[in-house]
Computed example of a mutant assay.
Amino acid sequence: MPVTLNSHQFARLIDRTADHIGDATLPVLHGVRLEADAEHLYAVATDRYTLAVARYRHHGLDGKAFARTVPARALPALRRWLTDQPGDAHITLTPVDGKLRFTTEAGEMTLTTDGDQDYIGWRGLLRDILAKTTDRPEVDTDGDQEDLPVLDARLLTRFTTADTHLRIRTGPGRTPALLVGEDFLGAQSPVRSRHEGFGAGTDDTLGGVRALWETGLTDPDSHTAVPMPAPRRSYDAPQTSSGTAEALLRQTMASTRDLLEEIDSPRAVAAHAAAGASAWAAYRYLDALHRADPSLAAQVIAEVADELDDGALGEFAWDAAAKAGFDPQKWYDELDQAATAAGGTAAEAPVGLGTDS
């Protein structure tokens, strides 16, 4: 019956779902539901308007599946205890007589929980939403879209901890919107615009919205339509852990392949070897960071993506080297000497990737 998984990954399950906990007037929903099956540990929370389900593949379930709800009042203490655990530590969850015991090599914590009865059938709810959610918009008899779904933006903010990026798909009528992330499924119930302060004159269909905005979105005769300028990008960097991992592994494989094909060019061989080795090292570091602390990994990936997009990598490296106590000027002098000895030209200043000429 015990289940074991990474400590930080368990903390992330709590973080991705806690904002969706129902209020105290509905005790059965006033907490985070933890359910373990043969492959995953699930964390579930709902306030009846939004539903969040996050999962993580555990290291093994010793016995039969179990389900327990950690009450909202106990979550702050559990979250603080998890923060004190090493990121890569293994934590074992064991249900014992109406309680749930959390154990690591450093110690343990036991909380009183609710049992495996009286919780909503979230699996059936999500199966129904998935069945009604279509890849193409529903159309009415006139060939136009049905009423546009209306989502409460205040409820949408509860999904900010779910993932860096979420895919959203809506179904017909009053079907809840489906939100999909990495090992995450969420749902949000729509509201009816006429009853939520949008005004009786608002048309809820896409055709009505087009008619309402058609004049305002037409360029005046006195203006010349100018297309929106595309942002200057020096490097289209991945924005997620999985996307970055894929890019690094592809680069490693490409560089290794090219390394074998460039045997007649020593400089090309060296370039491919350096690129492949750097990509592989970066992947290994990223993989370790993602397993230890996914939130920190996502933060670092976003920061690096912005730096790559800026393109001034030489300047960034110069500043980082100086801050770390190294002598970047000495490195440039050594590069100048090597270039001069090889008949090349000396470098005068840090050069960033994609620097404008």
Rank of each mutant, 00 (worst) to 15 (best):
R73M: 05
D264C: 03
Q188S: 12
E146G: 15
Y49I: 04
A200G: 14
D203A: 15
E138R: 11
D135T: 12
G344P: 02
A338L: 13
T256Q: 12
D128F: 10
R257W: 02
D152K: 06
D219F: 07
L5E: 07
L353M: 15
A282P: 00
M253I: 01
L82Y: 05
Q9N: 13
R284H: 11
P266C: 07
G314L: 01
R12P: 01
D336H: 10
G173K: 12
Q145W: 08
Q329E: 15
H30W: 02
T170C: 15
V300K: 12
A77R: 01
L148N: 14
D356K: 07
V70A: 09
E334F: 02
L130G: 13
Q117I: 06
F198L: 12
T134R: 14
P149K: 12
L34V: 05
K132L: 10
A106C: 00
P231I: 00
P86W: 08
D135G: 15
A346S: 04
A274P: 03
Q9V: 07
T240C: 12
L130W: 12
A131S: 03
R68K: 11
Q337Y: 04
D306N: 06
P190E: 10
T50D: 13
S357F: 14
A312C: 01
A254V: 00
R194T: 05
A273F: 02
L248H: 03
R12Q: 07
T113I: 01
T218C: 05
S278M: 02
H195I: 08
Q117N: 09
T46G: 12
S241N: 10
E146W: 07
A65K: 08
A321L: 10
Q188M: 15
T4F: 06
G208M: 06
E334T: 02
G107L: 12
A339P: 00
M228S: 13
G276F: 00
R101Q: 15
H223K: 10
R80E: 08
P231V: 08
G354H: 05
P76N: 05
V70H: 03
R158G: 09
A247R: 08
L286E: 14
D319T: 04
L5F: 08
A45F: 01
Y235V: 04
E146I: 07
L353I: 13
A254G: 02
E307C: 05
A346I: 02
K64I: 10
G63V: 10
D118P: 03
D336F: 03
P95V: 12
P95T: 13
K323N: 02
L148E: 11
L353E: 11
L260M: 07
L259H: 01
D219I: 00
A225H: 14
D204E: 15
T69H: 04
G87E: 08
E146S: 13
W318A: 03
P172Q: 11
E307N: 09
L296E: 15
F326M: 01
E348G: 04
V28S: 08
R257I: 06
T112M: 03
V32R: 04
L179M: 13
R16P: 06
P190L: 07
G216L: 00
P220Q: 00
W213M: 14
P350F: 00
